[in-house]
Simulated assay, not measured.
Amino acid sequence: MTALRRIRPTRRGTGVAFAVAFAGAIAALGGTRSLDAVAVPAAVALVVGAAQLARADRPRVRRTDPEPGAPGERRAVTVSVDSAVPCTVVEPVGEKLAVVDTPGGRGEGADRPGGETEVIEAVGHGGTFEYAVELGRRGEHRLGPARCRLVDSLGLFRATVPTEGGTTALVHPEIRAIDPTALPATGREPYGDDRSTFDRLREYTPGDSLRDIHWRASAKRPDEGFLIAEYSGRSGSAGITLVGESGRGGADAMASAVASLAVHLVAAGETVTVVVPDGERSARPGETGGVLRVLALTDGGECTAAERARADVRVRAEGGAATVTASDRSVGFDALSTPPSRKRGEVPG
């Protein structure tokens, strides 16, 4: 139910209340009973409108969870609303996300102090609408919870009520292409290309090398995805450990460098363990989601001496520049990477 303290008359409701009071006063002074035909129905409408709004349950708002992505990518968010009375949804969008589209042209965006944006959409007694956001800075950014502007069916009273729930959009660090010829050697036996002993088949995932596709097994299931062959001779030892740390203002540069190296090494078939001051996570070929999440959320800082001692590759960033060190050889991250070329305008669900 809607708290009575939230209910306010609309302009229409104020006009009707004034008409009721005026007609009642004239009837009382002049004895004109014909005015009751106007005043009484209007007064009943006011009571019914207020009662409808007071008895209405709080709307239920649900939204889809956008897939994590890189800065500059776009994600669609679908919002579903159930409401007992006419409702307009006001959906707050985090300041690091830009509202770029409201499909169908039905919605509108409004900037708020502090950099937040609001998506405003009228849904009547309930419905579904969609909007798109462009992912901004690395991190986890809030979508919702929404506020609902309610009115009664006659438009005489209004109320704004909060709703529960919300979700987040996870923005990964910027991933750059790595030049393997410029990458310092790790000083350990490389992963190599030993295909002497077959291990298992698994589903193809983006980033897998096409030369690892098992074409014969994949041909037996034409309606499904490709299969990747893994070999026990390619399991390496304990994998490669990447340790990332940063000084003042270097968290974003460190996260980008470590993420780029991790994605490159995993695509090459390595098992990678990423260690940052906030924690650590390992990734096998085709499984980079957990590592990218840790790097999306890290605040940077200094690792312990024990963590540094584990590093096969160490990344340190100061300000906006990162340095990659392996086997006592250091190279600037910009010298071994290429910024991504983004295709804007695509809105994956």
Rank of each mutant, 00 (worst) to 15 (best):
R149S: 11
R149N: 10
R149L: 15
L150H: 06
L150F: 10
L150R: 04
L150T: 11
L150C: 10
V151P: 02
D152P: 14
S153T: 15
S153W: 14
L154G: 10
L154C: 11
G155A: 13
L156R: 10
F157L: 06
F157Y: 15
F157C: 10
F157V: 15
F157R: 13
R158M: 15
A159S: 15
V161H: 15
P162H: 13
T163L: 14
T163F: 14
T163V: 15
E164D: 09
E164L: 14
E164I: 15
G165W: 15
G165Q: 11
G166A: 11
G166K: 11
L170E: 01
L170N: 02
H172R: 13
P173H: 00
E174S: 07
E174N: 03
I175Y: 03
I175T: 09
R176L: 05
R176D: 02
A177H: 12
A177Q: 08
A177M: 08
A177G: 05
D179F: 13
D179T: 07
D179P: 10
T181F: 13
T181G: 03
T181D: 08
A182G: 15
L183E: 04
P184K: 04
P184L: 05
P184F: 10
G187D: 11
G187V: 11
G187A: 11
R188T: 12
R188W: 14
E189P: 13
P190L: 07
G192L: 13
G192F: 08
G192N: 02
D193N: 04
D193M: 05
D194L: 01
D194G: 00
D194K: 02
S196Y: 04
T197Y: 03
T197C: 03
T197M: 05
D199S: 00
R200F: 04
R200I: 01
E203R: 01
E203C: 00
Y204R: 00
T205R: 03
T205W: 04
T205V: 05
P206M: 05
P206F: 03
P206K: 02
G207P: 02
S209T: 03
R211D: 04
R211Y: 04
R211C: 04
D212P: 09
D212L: 06
D212Y: 08
I213D: 00
W215S: 02
R216L: 05
R216H: 05
A217S: 13
S218C: 07
A219P: 10
R221E: 06
R221N: 08
P222A: 11
G225F: 05
F226I: 01
L227Y: 07
L227P: 05
I228G: 03
E230T: 15
E230N: 10
E230R: 08
Y231R: 00
Y231T: 04
Y231F: 15
S232K: 10
S232D: 08
G233A: 14
G233M: 03
G233I: 02
R234L: 14
R234Q: 09
R234C: 06
S235T: 12
S235E: 13
G236D: 07
S237W: 13
S237C: 05
S237Q: 12
G239A: 12
G239L: 12
T241K: 09
T241L: 13
L242E: 03
L242P: 08
L242R: 08
V243W: 03
V243T: 11
S246R: 01
G247T: 06
A251R: 07
A251S: 15
D252H: 09
